[in-house]
Structures are given as C-alpha cells and as structure tokens.
C-alpha cells in the first residue's frame, strides 16, 4: 500500500488508487494537474489537504475509522460541502448512468421483466433521493444556518443506508438470477460492475457520515 502524503504528486495518488478519481470529479477539481502535489492542488482549489487526505483514506480503506485526533471542528463545513457534492454525483451521474445500463439490458427482455425491473429501479432511485434530500434538509441546512437541536445528534443515518444497501444488492441479485437468457451477458456484466461500484461508494459515503460527520455534528451541537 502506498502511504498517503500531501506532498505526493497528484498523479502518484491517482496512479496508486484509481478508485479515487471519482472524488476529483465530484469535487469539480479540474484537470490537468501538471506535476503538482496534492498539497498544491488543495491550496489551488481551496480545500484542506488534511481533510482531502482523510476522505481519500476512508475511500481506499472501508475499515478505516478516524480518531478524534484526525478530526477538527473546522472540518464540519467542508465535510458537508463534500457530502453535498457526493449527493449531486449520485443523483446527476451515478444513478442515471446505472439506469441507462439497466435500460440497455431491458431492451432485450420481455415486457414483464422490463416493467418490473424499471419500476424497481425507479423506486430505488426515489428512495435514495428521498433519503439524501431529507439529510440535506434536516441536517446539513441546519448546520449551515447555525441552528442546533438535539434531533440533529439523533438523526438516523444507519437504517436508511442499510435499506439502500439491501436494495442495491437486490438489483444485482435480480439481474444475475431472474432476467431471461435473451439479456446479453456483456450488458449484464457492465451493469453489474456499475451497481457494485455504486454499492461500494454508498458504503464509503455512509462511513464518512457515520465516522466523520456525526462526531462533528455532536461537537457542533454541544458547543
């Protein structure tokens, strides 16, 4: 494993961990990087390199949990900014993109499979959008308006994510097990690759909310 260091070149970081590319994309960090370091890139684009590296670390290693030493109160605003950007990334890119791959498969399927899977996916997207919207309204906006309430600390993050995780897995199971033979394997595999990518990203997102956002919100409320 290549050690993460703000002094490393941006290209070295991407080359070692290509799965981090989507972070650049969702934060709107523009290419080219030339030969600049992560520190220089963060300074250029107005991000904290400490937080950027922390988010990278949590993306690379799902089991990594930051301790209080890694978290400082001034991270709250930027973390919410990152989470909002991730929500947009899901809603504007990942979900429609995955939906298009599903439609490609369904074009080869019978009417019943088409209607059932389309409806299931539409409900799935609606469920994610509802959760993300609720989170933005009840949690992020209150923090941004500096309004505190005990409800913010008790805001349920885990159950909605668990439900979404179940449904994400269900899409994969249905595509593998239930679609008729006419659905081409190549299209199925492409769709599955996307759905697993989405599942893993949602799990990382949940981890960032659970282990980074929640302690920051608790500090904010108890200040």
């Amino acid at each position: 494993m290549v050690a993460l260091d703000p002094e490393m070149k941006v290209f070295e970081l991407i080359d070692a961990y290509p799965e981090l590319l989507s972070i650049f994309s969702r934060l709107g960090i523009t290419l080219p990087f030339g030969d600049i370091s992560v520190e220089q890139m963060c300074r250029r684009d107005g991000y904290s390199s400490k937080l950027f590296m922390l988010i990278c670390r949590m993306h690379i290693d799902l089991s990594y949990i930051p301790t209080s030493e890694h978290i400082s109160e001034d991270m709250l605003g930027p973390v919410i900014g990152y989470l909002r950007a991730t929500h947009r990334y899901y809603i504007e890119y990942m979900l429609p993109h995955t939906g298009r791959h599903l439609n490609d498969i369904l074009e080869h399927c019978d009417e019943l499979s088409r209607s059932m899977l389309s409806r299931f996916y539409a409900d799935y997207v609606a469920c994610i959008e509802e959760h993300l919207g609720d989170e933005e309204q009840r949690l992020f906006s209150n923090v941004e308006r500096s309004e505190t309430s005990a409800d913010m600390c008790n805001y349920e993050l885990d159950q909605p994510h668990s439900d979404i995780d179940d449904r994400t897995g269900d899409i994969a199971s249905l595509i593998v097990k239930c679609l008729p033979e006419e659905a081409p394997t190549t299209l199925r595999c492409t769709m599955l690759a996307h759905i697993y990518m989405l599942r893993d990203d949602l799990r990382r997102h949940h981890n960032i909310e659970r282990y980074l956002l929640r302690p920051l919100v608790e500090k904010f409320v108890n200040k």
């Binding site: 499979s113 059932m116 299931f120 409900d123 449904r167 269900d170 199971s173 249905l174 097990k177 239930c178």
Partner: peptide
C-alpha cells in the same frame, strides 16, 4: 436462498418467477 432482502425485491422475484401475477 434468493439473495434478495427487500420486500420490493422479493416481489419482483416472485413475479419474474411466475409465483404471482403482477
């Protein structure tokens, strides 16, 4: 056995496996 956890997913499974009409 099905690998499907949500009620919505089980419903799709049941319909596509002809256990129930839509």
């Amino acid at each position: 056995k099905t690998g499907i956890r949500s009620v919505a997913g089980l419903t799709v499974y049941a319909v596509l496996n002809k256990l129930i009409n839509s």
